[in-house]
Amino acid sequence: MDKKTIRKKIIAERDEMDFDVKQAKDELIVNKFLELGFIDKYDNIFSYVNFGSEIDVGKILSTILEKGKNLFVPYVDVKSKQMYLCQITDLSTDLEKGHYGILEPKKNLRKPVNSDIIDCVISPGVAFTTKKDRTGYGGGYYDRFYSSLKQRPFIVALAYDFQILESLPTESFDVPVDMIITEKKIIK
């Protein structure tokens, strides 16, 4: 299967999940992430803000802020196809709907950030492998972002078990993750 077909199949399966089942799986995945102590270990954490049927990271984001760590979230420039970071300090007031309907930092908060300070990334993705390959939504935003960094941060992906495939078509610019946490396992 090509990437486009894989994306369509996995997103459809994710979208069709029963609400209660999704909520239970999200809680298991989020709690595993929190128990692994990443928030205590890292100071500058970059995370996606979930939308659609992605795993709900709200509890992780609020825990990062409660522990006094620096939380960065993305916004995109669709024309240049670049993703930028913005530090936020309040989940209820600092975000607004942006491109694709995804919550992004409000425009007045966006200031240039030295992305090289990021030491941990909570990465979104559509499909993964046990070798930690990652396929995103097809825009290449995260791969370009990772390639632009001088130092590679620790990249952890949150996924449902059905998002882990035997193999994925990969290209030279695809950046693998360092760990994947699902409701059933942790892939290191």
Score class of each variant (00 low, 15 high):
Lys97Ile: 07
Gln151Leu: 15
Asn50Ile: 05
Glu66Leu: 13
Asn50Arg: 08
Pro153Val: 02
Gln82Leu: 15
Asp94Lys: 08
Tyr141Lys: 05
His99Met: 12
Asp90Trp: 06
Gly101Arg: 01
Glu35Ile: 05
Asp40Cys: 03
Ala24Phe: 09
Glu27Pro: 02
Gln82Phe: 14
Glu54Thr: 00
Leu34Ala: 02
Lys107Tyr: 12
Gly98Trp: 03
Ile45Lys: 07
His99Trp: 07
Leu109Ser: 05
Gln151Ser: 15
Pro124Trp: 00
Lys81Ala: 13
Ile88Trp: 03
Ile102Ser: 00
Lys132Val: 12
Lys132Arg: 15
Ser147Asp: 07
Ser148Cys: 06
Lys69Leu: 07
Gly136Leu: 01
Val76Lys: 04
Leu95Met: 12
Gly136Asn: 01
Asn114Gly: 14
Ile29Pro: 00
Leu65Pro: 11
Gly139Cys: 04
Ser62Tyr: 06
Pro112Ala: 15
Leu95Tyr: 09
Gly136His: 01
Asp56Phe: 09
Thr63His: 10
Ile60Thr: 09
Tyr48Glu: 03
Leu91Pro: 03
Asp56Gln: 11
Thr63Arg: 13
Gly52Val: 11
Lys107Thr: 12
Gln23Pro: 05
Arg110Trp: 14
Asp40Met: 06
Glu96Ser: 01
Gly139Glu: 06
Gln82Ile: 14
Lys131His: 14
Ile122Met: 11
Lys81Arg: 15
Leu85Tyr: 09
Lys25Glu: 11
Gly138Tyr: 13
Phe38Ile: 05
Tyr42Lys: 07
Arg110Leu: 13
Lys67Leu: 08
Val156Asn: 08
Tyr84Glu: 12
Tyr160Met: 13
Arg134Met: 04
Tyr48Leu: 03
Gln87Glu: 13
Asp119Met: 04
Tyr160Thr: 11
Gln82Ala: 15
Ile102His: 01
Thr129Glu: 03
Lys59Glu: 14
Val49Lys: 00
Lys111Leu: 15
Ile64Trp: 06
Ser53Pro: 02
Phe128Met: 06
Val73Gly: 09
Glu27Ile: 08
Ile45His: 08
Thr89Trp: 08
Lys22Ser: 04
Leu65Ala: 01
Cys86Tyr: 01
Ser92Gln: 12
Tyr137Asp: 07
Phe154Asp: 10
His99Asp: 10
Tyr100Trp: 02
Leu109Met: 08
